[in-house]
Amino acid sequence: MSDATPMVRMAGVNKHFGALHVLRDIDLEVARGEVVVVLGPSGSGKSTLCRAINRLEPVDEGSIEIDGRPLPAEGRDLAALRSDVGMVFQQFNLFSHLTIMDNVTLAPIRVRGVSRSDAESEARVLLDRVGIGEQSGKYPAQLSGGQQQRVAIARALAMAPKVMLFDEPTSALDPEMVGEVVEVMADLARDDMTMVVVTHEMGFARRTAHRVVFMDDGEIVEDTTPESFFSRPATDRARDFLSKILTH
């Protein structure tokens, strides 16, 4: 695919949960190396949007493409496509019965067929990069939330993904641990990783994002630069949202 092909492309995407219309005519393109932060009040559909990109949430209509390839239906092809899309969850979701090392090497070994020794040396590099190098023999429950989330990022990176999805990666963390995770994410952005980040971290959105997408009630209401979103929001809904979070 040429560099002009967007890494993620959503067109006319709609989704309902029963009577609730959670995604309304979503059109979104994310270019290669671009960092897009998705903001919005809770219940605005931003998590659902993020999860729709690798089909953890199937959508009712519309098309979604990753690197020019439409998302396949459930099955082997979808699994292959997901292996190229890293995902980091609010609740970390590290495999609780496996050591940190096994968490990071499982998918490279089982999905990519990498040898255990290669997977482990790659894992050590990644764990060092996120500052967990010393803890690789421990179990997830023995680490703090911030450490677990950094391992979760390393686990996703071990698959050498084309794009990383972050679904509220700092929302379940104690405040003093937010910084260490945001730092790892900023580091990834500097290395030109394509990222879609659903977050409440306004600092990250201001400093690191190339674009801010503001959602409300299942719709994309604004899609602009962080600078213009935070200083000159174009809609009342965005102004209302910003006044609520920035007064604290």
Binding site: L81, R82, S83, L94, S96, H97, A107, V111, A156
Partner: peptide, 30 residues
């Protein structure tokens, strides 16, 4: 076993059988 465990496995590209045998069943039996 929390749903997040199998979601994380599927997000990494593991298929249904791998997710069940490597992630869900070991935790379920424990």
């Amino acid at each position: 076993v929390p749903a997040g465990q199998s979601e994380a496995a599927r997000a990494l590209g593991l298929g249904f059988t791998q997710t069940l045998s490597l992630i869900v069943l070991p935790q379920a039996i424990r």
